[in-house]
């Protein structure tokens, strides 16, 4: 478990000070995959380095399983660090060593006997699917394979926590997916707590249980993936959601609405959970004397739960349309679309 208690990291530069991390309160539970998302410069890189004390907090405390690393002696800190694996955007492998020796490296630091070490390396390379690459050098591997070596190296000492510093940002979308699947497997099979930072919304959507959104060093919003995607509050969160979910009605459709008379009845239906599985529209068409015209929409899946929205035009008499709305509001969230606001 990782707890940030009112943590700040302040860099003094001559007269000015930069608050890279600003009064962050955050708890990452055991066995959870927690994502921190933010644009570059938001402070997430600093935040993740506070966990294994690569950066020292200026204020507040970071507790790892209840222990404040800042209070430890250097030898004790090094011991705790062996229980916290870390992977990086640019992999940071030893170019002069083979895959086998890269993975063995953290074990050899603590003087693990050669036989145990070889056994463990073999085991973990099998887990990440690189058994056949043990004798190759990092230079000979693809980006995805290098990150697998990074993951194997981070897991070699059987840590409780895995820190992922933009681990997929240098990879193409396909490779990103396979690495994320592997990270999920790491959590599911070893029960390791994973804290990842990223600027890619599709990454957190794919794999995280909960996320926090960071901006200017502060956590501006946090919650389950589902809550943040379905009800984003902060403008930055909305921006991030927009990168993977098109919420705005395309201009071509909006223009069409404006050009004709403004008295058209256009609504946005937001489907959440089981309502997405119901044939809401066909029920309306059957039960009421209205025509249903779908203008735009998107349904996707978050954490195994269907989620999405439809922009629909209802054609018919006004009282009848009101009845439709009253009826359907019990099942889905309804919002009237009046102008550009969408």
């Amino acid at each position: 478990m990782i707890q940030f208690e009112n943590v700040s990291k302040i860099y003094q530069h001559n007269d000015s000070e930069l608050r890279a991390v600003d009064q962050v309160d955050l708890t990452v539970h055991k066995g959870e995959i927690f994502g921190v998302i933010g644009f570059s410069g938001a402070g997430k890189s600093t935040l993740i380095r506070l966990v294994n004390l690569l950066e020292k907090p200026s204020e507040g405390r970071v507790l790892i399983n209840g222990e404040d690393l800042a209070k430890l002696t250097k030898p004790d800190l090094r011991k705790v660090r062996k229980r916290i694996g870390m992977i990086f955007q640019h992999f940071n492998l030893l170019e002069s060593k083979t895959v086998h020796h890269n993975v063995a490296f953290p074990l050899s630091l603590s003087g693990t006997p050669k036989k145990d070490m070889n056994q463990r390396v073999k085991e973990i390379l099998e887990f990440v699917g690189l058994s056949d690459k043990a004798k190759q050098y990092p230079e000979e591997l693809s980006g995805g394979q290098k990150q697998r070596v990074g993951i194997a190296r981070a897991l070699a000492t059987s840590p409780d926590i895995l820190l992922c510093d933009e681990a997929t940002s240098a990879l193409d979308p396909e490779t990103t997916k396979s690495i994320l699947r592997l990270l999920r497997k790491v959590r599911d099979e070893y029960g390791i707590t994973i804290l990842m930072i990223t600027h890619e919304m599709n990454v957190v959507r794919e794999v995280c249980d909960r996320i926090a959104v960071m901006e200017s060093g502060q956590v501006i919003e946090k919650g389950s993936i589902f809550d943040l995607f379905s009800k984003p509050q902060h403008p930055t969160t909305k921006n991030f959601v927009r990168t993977v979910m098109e919420n705005d009605i395309p201009a071509s459709i909006l223009n069409g609405i404006d050009e004709r008379d403004s008295s058209r009845n256009i609504y946005r239906f937001t489907f959440v959970d089981e309502s997405a599985g119901q044939p809401v529209l066909s029920q309306i068409a059957k039960k009421f004397d209205v025509e249903v015209n779908v203008l735009f929409g998107q349904i996707t899946e978050l954490q195994g739960v269907p989620f999405g929205h439809l922009v629909v035009e209802l054609q018919g008499e006004d009282p009848e349309i009101l009845r439709v709305i009253n009826h359907i509001q019990q099942k889905v969230a309804v919002q009237e679309v009046t102008s550009h606001a969408g």
């Binding site: 294994n52 690569l54 800190l77 090094r78 011991k79 705790v80 660090r81 062996k82 916290i84 870390m86 990086f88 640019h90 940071n92 492998l93 030893l94 170019e95 002069s96 060593k97 490296f105 953290p106 050899s108 630091l109 603590s110 190296r153 000492t157 820190l163």
Partner: peptide, 23 residues
């Protein structure tokens, strides 16, 4: 980054010099 990775693994400064920097 490679030095940082070794630090994150709990390597001592001497281990980093001998087993990361020099090789």
């Amino acid at each position: 980054g490679v030095i940082e990775a070794a630090e994150s693994m709990g390597a001592t400064p001497w281990q980093i010099v001998r087993r990361v920097y020099i090789p």
